[in-house]
């Protein structure tokens, strides 16, 4: 029997497919299963119905973490898009030394969230960071103490996150702006359309698919924001900056509540699925538009 190239290709892909099916989807199913058990340190297979979910929803720490997902996610995505777009437009307007700025703003992306978190932790630390530096310049009353305030610590996550990711949005949108046919701009000039209206009514709608791409990339960062939180605030003060991912990891591995953690993981998965379905809708609307 002759082996066709297609058969070879399929054969080579088998390990990958197995890994995906067992590793990803298998784990997901297992987690969902565990969320209906009262497992503590080790998985048990006793049915507990929705007990874990009830416990989870009444846990204050989870409520904070889940709310933070949206506070952090909304602000992070919003500011990243806004800053990235403004930077991209500035570059597109032909700022001198364009490639230098591009490199500077893109650089943070090369760092992991861990490094980003640590760097900002030092920077925002009252005794070693910016506050100390500004005071040493003679402004004795200067105070920059975001990290120790439970209400404001979440914003340090946003600041560090935006610093990290705005460059990515900039690069993607800048590529989009550059691909806009110059003749469209010329047509706008002949028509007497001011630049800002060209951006608003013509160019940005053309960039819609790229905005959605940014949304997806940033959204994934929000969901796995675990490392940024761990490095920058450790979830504190208290658990004021906790996020679902950190809640889940803590409960699996430190607090030995596998059932509760699984319920949290399942809820997070559900949230992500719903959000991504919304993004899919947005994308389809963009295509129809």
């Amino acid at each position: 029997m002759a082996i066709t190239p297609q058969a070879t290709a399929r054969f080579v892909l088998v390990p990958t497919i197995l890994l995906t099916v067992v590793g990803y989807y298998g784990s997901i199913l297992w987690t969902i299963g565990l969320s209906f058990t009262p497992s503590r340190i080790l998985p048990v297979s006793r049915w507990a119905g929705l007990d874990m979910y009830e416990r989870l929803l009444s846990t204050e720490r989870w409520q904070v973490a889940y709310t933070n997902l949206f506070v952090f996610g909304g602000l992070y995505i919003g500011f990243c898009l806004a800053a990235g777009l403004l930077l991209a437009i500035a570059l597109d307007q032909g700022v001198k030394g364009r490639s230098v700025y591009q490199t500077i703003f893109l650089y943070p992306i090369a760092l992991s969230f861990i490094v980003t978190g640590l760097a900002w932790r030092w920077l925002l630390n009252p005794t070693t960071g910016l506050q100390d530096y500004v005071r040493s310049l003679g402004f004795e009353s200067f105070s920059l103490d975001l990290l120790s305030s439970p209400e404001r610590a979440i914003f340090t996550l946003v600041i560090a996150g935006v610093w990290h990711s705005a460059g990515l949005v900039m690069v993607i949108l800048f590529a989009g702006l550059q691909s806009v046919d110059q003749e469209i701009w010329r047509a706008g000039r002949v028509d007497g359309i001011p630049r800002h209206r060209m951006y608003r009514h013509v160019v940005l709608p053309m960039l819609w698919p790229m905005v959605v791409t940014c949304l997806v990339l940033l959204g994934m960062n929000v969901v796995r924001s675990y490392d940024l939180v761990v490095a920058l605030t450790g979830g504190g003060p208290g658990f004021s900056t906790d996020v679902p991912a950190k809640f889940i990891v803590d409960h699996y591995f430190e607090r030995q509540s596998v059932g509760l953690a699984s319920a949290a993981a399942t809820l997070l998965l559900l949230t992500v699925v719903v959000l991504f379905a919304l993004v899919g809708l947005l994308r389809r609307r963009g295509e129809a538009a």
Partner: peptide
């Protein structure tokens, strides 16, 4: 003015 690439605003 009419351009070679037409230069229509594609999303309108």
């Amino acid at each position: 003015m009419v351009f070679q690439s037409y230069a229509l605003y594609p999303t309108m």
